[in-house]
Amino acid sequence: MKPGDESWAIVDTHQHFQSLSDASYPWLDPERPEPLEGDLGPIRRDYLPADYRRDMEGLGVVKTVHVQNGRNPHDPVDETRWLSALARQEGMPDAIVAYADLAAPDVERKLEAHAGFPRVRGIRQILNWHDDPRLRSAPSPDLMENPQWRRGFARLAPLGLSFDLQLYWPQMDMALALARAFPGTSIVLEHFGMVGDRSPQGLSAWRAAISRLAQAPNVSVKLCGFGLGAPAWTIENTVPLLCHVLDAFGTERTMVGTNMPVDLLFGSPAKIVSTIHAIVMGLSIDERAALLRSNAEKVYRI
């Protein structure tokens, strides 16, 4: 952040903490087949507020949103409980996006338990479906159309909860239908739509899907996760993709994030923030402040 210029202050809308020394994180299990992120060895360790502050020192982050990180998934409220205690001790995260299986029979009880913690703002259930099992997180490609799952989704807005949406572009038309069926629910597209296939054909299909999804006014987007599916990413080849998303959603529905510590696998914190700065460089002061901070403060109520 430039000294004295609050318009460069950043709300990091996508970061994770983890404490492998006292909890189970199955996605970090060394016996698990190598996932989309590749070799997870470098981040298979505790990552706590002191680590985040060290990594982000001098880069202008003023608030953070923690997104569910798979701690003890058999008891998802445990992660919320742990994060809430961490926030009381450390002053961060400022908001929590928790996990719930929206198709579970007891989902209403789980959602109410999450909503009872004052920093909880939303729910994430990863919906990624791919023909390659390594890249697949959801039990089916069309979970968003499952009536039982939709009953769980319908409980979010009455509890004041948003939904963090993580999927691949072929699922975006289903997401558009979901957004239109639930116009009162705030939906936040993660990782600028998970650009996996970066062939000319793949990028063309992704761009078109992004533009269609942006038609739903209750959907906003996070520019984060720059290395997911593209571990050799550069600022030069990533900024044009982010600018397409920004053009589709506009400065009033776009936010930013770091995906720390996962994106440490693909680049430094300084590289991530430099990319964010490159996106906003041509914007007005008000537009820059909205994209970097105030949109996130509004969506996540922090």
Rank of each mutant, 00 (worst) to 15 (best):
96 I>L: 02
107 V>W: 07
125 Q>Y: 11
101 D>Y: 06
102 L>S: 05
145 E>K: 10
128 N>F: 10
109 R>C: 03
106 D>Y: 12
127 L>C: 12
146 N>I: 06
112 E>L: 12
110 K>A: 13
99 Y>A: 10
120 V>Q: 01
98 A>H: 00
116 G>T: 02
135 L>E: 06
101 D>G: 06
123 I>P: 00
119 R>A: 12
135 L>C: 09
119 R>L: 15
94 D>N: 14
113 A>I: 08
95 A>Q: 10
100 A>E: 01
143 L>C: 05
95 A>R: 15
128 N>Y: 01
107 V>H: 07
131 D>N: 10
125 Q>L: 04
122 G>W: 01
106 D>S: 14
111 L>F: 08
120 V>T: 11
102 L>C: 07
145 E>T: 11
98 A>C: 04
134 R>V: 10
110 K>Y: 05
97 V>Q: 02
109 R>D: 13
143 L>P: 03
98 A>L: 04
135 L>P: 02
114 H>C: 10
123 I>Y: 02
122 G>S: 04
141 P>H: 10
118 P>D: 13
128 N>G: 05
142 D>L: 07
106 D>V: 13
99 Y>L: 13
115 A>R: 15
128 N>K: 07
140 S>A: 15
123 I>L: 06
122 G>C: 04
116 G>L: 01
140 S>I: 07
111 L>R: 02
134 R>T: 12
133 P>Y: 05
100 A>L: 05
138 A>Q: 00
110 K>H: 11
144 M>K: 01
115 A>L: 09
122 G>R: 00
113 A>K: 05
119 R>Y: 02
